Amino acid sequence: MNKFIYKIFFLLNLKKKIFPVIVQNLYKKKILMIAWLNQWNLLESFFFKKTCFWSRSKKKNWRKGLFSNNIQLIKKMLFDCDIDSYLFIVNDNKKNCHYNLISCFNYNL
């Protein structure tokens, strides 16, 4: 079993309930969205290679593309040094934003 699996199982015992995840496009390297996940969403995303998040407003699991068919296929999963934030690199060019845009990050200050 590789080191990543051990680190995931280590996460199941952490006290922190949800973690931020940044979703990035594989080819264009554009940031598509930021979301939240818990330990079980992380395991589901890892084993099924499809993004699954935690909805803070609805307090339930949210599988990206379940109703919209905008499924994000995970190609790579990265995490920071203390394993409390993640980066999912996905193969997706569909509309990910609530405003029917490809990315949620479209505006400059």
Rank of each mutant, 00 (worst) to 15 (best):
D92L: 02
M1H: 14
K94Q: 04
D92V: 01
K50C: 09
N100D: 09
F19W: 07
K94I: 00
M77D: 01
K49Q: 11
Y86G: 02
L109S: 13
I31M: 05
K64I: 06
K76S: 05
V90W: 00
W36I: 05
D92M: 03
F10V: 13
K94V: 03
C97G: 06
N70P: 03
W62F: 11
C104S: 06
N13I: 10
N61I: 11
F46C: 08
F88R: 00
Y107P: 00
K7N: 13
F19N: 02
N100P: 02
F48H: 08
K50Q: 14
L73D: 10
G65L: 14
I34S: 08
C81K: 03
I71Q: 04
I83Y: 05
K64Q: 11
K95P: 01
Y99E: 08
M33A: 04
F79Q: 03
N91C: 02
L14M: 12
E44V: 07
Y99C: 06
W36Y: 12
K16P: 04
W36K: 02
W62M: 07
Y99V: 05
N106Y: 08
S55V: 13
K28R: 11
I34K: 02
K95E: 05
Y86P: 01
I74S: 00
V21Y: 01
L43T: 09
F105E: 03
S57N: 12
N96K: 04
I18M: 09
P20H: 14
I5W: 01
F67L: 10
L37V: 01
I34M: 10
D92I: 00
F46Y: 15
Q24E: 15
N69T: 07
L11G: 07
Q72E: 09
N108F: 15
